[in-house]
Design a protein around this nucleic acid. Sequence first.
DNA 1: CAGGATCCTATCCGATACTG
DNA 2: CAGTATCGGATAGGATCCTG
Lengths: 136, 136
Amino acid sequence: MVGGVQDRGTEAGGRYDVFHTDCPARDMVDHVTSRWGVWVLISLRSNDLRFFELRESIHGISEKMLAQTLRVLVQDGLLWRKVEPTTPPQVTYGLTEFGHEVGEPLTELFDRITRRLPPGGRPGLASPPAVGPLTT
Amino acid sequence: MVGGVQDRGTEAGGRYDVFHTDCPARDMVDHVTSRWGVWVLISLRSNDLRFFELRESIHGISEKMLAQTLRVLVQDGLLWRKVEPTTPPQVTYGLTEFGHEVGEPLTELFDRITRRLPPGGRPGLASPPAVGPLTT
DNA sequence: CAGGATCCTATCCGATACTG
DNA sequence: CAGTATCGGATAGGATCCTG
């Protein structure tokens, strides 16, 4: 699969040869750009947070999805997880160095989008006019 | 913009209050980070492409999803669409200025991930060791 | 508090068929 | 070529209940 289409032989000025067809990176990117992964990573950029803090912080996320997203991200080496064996238990999550590396462009992406949004609402956007208070 | 995103700083009080809960940005981010949106945007960074070129380029995408993804992205103002009324018809897609702005951090994100991947495969990742040819 | 297990629905997405 | 329309299976994701 990887070889076909894209390598149009023009090593020099490849036209649309790409990577998307590959593999391990694809999974990682999928995790990072997953519906909730994005927000978890952005949330943790400024400081470490506990499970319930993340839940409160990321509006609309269910415990199930939060737990699942965290598990994947920890597995990928983007987050670390610290368990305080107290009662009740306390679990804190934070970004690893890699997590920070990845979180930066993600935040930049978010910033650029929000900077463009306020002015003239995008016509055609399905979103209703009401810029709801909370959303989601 | 949307208020305080990261401005939480250290002010007393605000701990993990955030932005994710807002709204229009959320939709846009969802579109940009959607399963196929990411690859469409990255693909078009280097040059404009026609429908079938995109389909070939982004391995694994179906026509349905490509068309759907393109429609949303055009609506969001990230892509432009040019129709050549020839026979057969020819439709070309490209990034708008906004699209480029958004595509940059996305590419950066992708780069950082792929740079980290080759060395020591991340344990826990389902992907097999085989790192394809280009694959990024 | 942190999260696993279950159940069940919404949607995503691919395959197929058809249109301009 | 560049789509749209429809159907159906797979999966994401929410709600609830339960445990350490």
